[in-house]
């Protein structure tokens, strides 16, 4: 994998995770004050650092064949899950998962939770602490996973880590500037693109790890990525036609506006 492809893939994938975690922390901080969410954020980062420190050397000592098989399969399953959701959203079968909706849900949940169960160890607001901590650990774990696997497979972990750091810094900078939900970031479109990239790299690595020899070796990625993109867009078109047919056959059915596919 060339350097810029690795950087772009890791950057996009990590940006999506950073947007989700940042949105949750912002929502909790705005509604319940910043002390506990920032402590949750710090605790989450500490846990992540420990996981990455433990995971990095372990992965480096694993032979490349089994590593490619395992992480390729995981990336492929992740990527297909993202693609499936993106296709369903783009064709109107699934509600859009935009950051404004996520922000509104978190705000509502934070208000409903009230201030019951305060504990000083979590900065006076365990709910805010837990929400921020959970978001940072879960999304950060995915970032760490992307960095370690992309970087290890391309034999360039520092570049993948640089891409992840750039994505995180830019996302946080944008969040500080807008000080609100990150709805300006076209998350659905990014997820569609990231799903294509994860499925492409996952397919390549997993098949190679299982013993397959790709025609053209690494250069086959230049065919795999556009092929999966074409298949995905064909899936959106087919699902939109099916949705249209279902709406025509049953006039009472709701018909959401298709969105989320980059034009």
């Amino acid at each position: 994998m060339t350097g810029w492809v690795l950087f772009l893939a890791a950057f996009l994938a990590c940006a999506v995770e950073a947007v989700e975690a940042t949105t949750v922390v912002l929502a909790v901080g705005v509604t319940r004050g910043w002390g506990s969410p920032l402590r949750g954020l710090a605790a989450g980062i500490a846990v992540l650092a420990a996981i990455v420190a433990a995971l990095g050397p372990a992965i480096a000592s694993i032979p490349m064949g089994p590593l490619r098989l395992i992480v390729g399969a995981l990336l492929l399953v992740f990527g297909l899950g993202w693609l499936r959701k993106a296709i369903l959203r783009a064709s109107g079968y699934k509600a859009l998962h935009d950051e404004e909706l996520l922000y509104a849900k978190e705000v509502e949940a934070a208000r409903k939770a009230g201030n019951a169960g305060r504990r000083p160890l979590m900065g006076g607001d365990p709910y805010a602490f837990t929400l921020a901590f959970k978001a940072v650990v879960l999304e950060g774990l995915e970032v760490a996973f992307i960095v370690v696997t992309f970087g290890a497979n391309a034999r360039n972990v520092p570049l993948a880590a640089l891409a992840a750091a750039a994505a995180t810094v830019i996302t946080v900078a944008v969040a500080l500037v807008v000080k609100g939900p990150l709805s300006r970031v076209p998350e659905n479109s990014i997820k569609f693109a990231v799903g294509i990239l994860l499925a492409s790299f996952g397919t390549f690595w997993a098949a190679e790890g299982a013993g397959a020899d790709w025609p053209g070796a690494d250069a086959s990625l230049l065919a795999i990525i556009p092929a999966i993109a074409i298949i995905s867009f064909a899936g959106v078109a087919a699902m939109r036609r099916k949705r249209q047919w279902q709406v025509t056959a049953v006039p009472a059915a709701p018909s959401p506006t298709p969105e989320g596919v980059p034009s």
């Binding site: 397919t203 098949a207 299982a210 013993g211 397959a212 020899d213 025609p215 086959s220 795999i224 092929a227």
Partner: peptide, 8 residues
């Protein structure tokens, strides 16, 4: 046998 096509 050629195997690369099977996974996709």
């Amino acid at each position: 046998l050629p195997a690369w096509w099977a996974l996709p």
